[in-house]
Simulated assay, not measured.
Amino acid sequence: MTERPLLTKELNAKTFREYYYLKEELIEFCRQEYLQTTGGKIELTDRIAHYLDTGERLYVKKESTRSYDVGFLTLDTYIEPNFVCTQTHREFFKCVIGNKFSFNVLFQNWLKENSGKTYREAVAAYHRIQEDKKYNRTEISKQFEYNTYIRDFFDDNPGKSLRHAIACWQYKRNIPGHNRYERSDLDAINN
């Protein structure tokens, strides 16, 4: 098995993209090379690859979004434009829905796409989303390679343990190529 190379500025972008690096490793590299550390894993990967190919440091200027002081929330308050999850929102939803409340991606997206509707409608949407999650498989975003891998592993190997899945994942992320589950990854636990 080929060892995963250290992430250094001597690495070329093609080789860099063939291996899996944790977001923390990407951020640390960015700090060392004075690259912008903001954004998700995909943005960081693209920024680093560009730097490794060209030596150019890309800077993305975040668009300023007008922040609204939401004040006191009620069920009849309207969802503000440019919705941002705040502690005020979290406390409101925990009070109305209960301590089990959490901002999941689907609900955050619903809130961002439905400004002008009421928080009463948001609470109803939250309950619908939670109910749908019981019966329908949620889509895992592209940047969550580990979660996708583990789900696919268990789809193919229902009798295996999480320890087996993690061992296969660790094997997979240290070899060049994609990070999607393949049955041949089981070699990591069979040998």
Rank of each mutant, 00 (worst) to 15 (best):
K41V: 03
T15Q: 14
E182C: 01
R137P: 04
K112G: 05
L106W: 11
L162E: 15
Q170G: 00
D76K: 13
G55M: 04
T15W: 05
R163K: 14
E113F: 01
R173H: 00
F93W: 06
Y21H: 01
N191S: 10
K23D: 12
K172R: 04
N82L: 07
G55D: 11
V105Y: 15
T65C: 05
N136C: 06
Q170E: 10
D185L: 13
Y21G: 11
Y149V: 04
V96G: 05
K117S: 14
I79F: 05
I166C: 04
A167L: 12
R183F: 06
F144Y: 15
E56N: 12
E10L: 13
G116R: 10
P81E: 07
T38V: 10
K14A: 05
L35S: 07
Q143S: 15
L75I: 02
R151H: 06
F153W: 10
E63W: 00
K62Q: 15
W169S: 03
R120W: 06
Q32A: 01
R57P: 02
Y19K: 08
I140N: 14
Q143H: 08
H127V: 06
A188C: 03
D69R: 13
R163N: 03
Q87V: 04
P5F: 10
E131W: 12
R47A: 08
A124F: 12
Q87R: 10
T138H: 13
V123P: 11
R4V: 06
T37M: 13
F101K: 06
Y146M: 08
A122C: 11
E91P: 02
F72C: 10
F101E: 07
L58Q: 12
M1I: 15
P81C: 11
T45V: 11
T118S: 14
K117H: 04
Y181W: 12
K61N: 00
I48M: 04
G39N: 03
K142F: 13
T148E: 02
D46W: 05
L106E: 10
E145V: 15
L6V: 02
N82C: 11
S67K: 06
S102L: 14
E24R: 04
W169P: 07
L35W: 01
K94S: 01
K133V: 03
F101S: 02
Q130C: 15
E56G: 01
A188Y: 13
R17C: 04
E113I: 01
G40I: 05
L162Y: 08
F83Y: 12
G159D: 08
D155F: 10
A13H: 01
H127Q: 14
Y119E: 09
E80G: 06
W110C: 09
R17E: 13
L75F: 03
H89E: 08
K160D: 10
K61S: 09
K62N: 08
Q130G: 12
G55Y: 06
K23E: 14
T77N: 05
L186E: 09
F72I: 05
T74K: 10
C168K: 07
T88M: 11
A124R: 13
L7C: 02
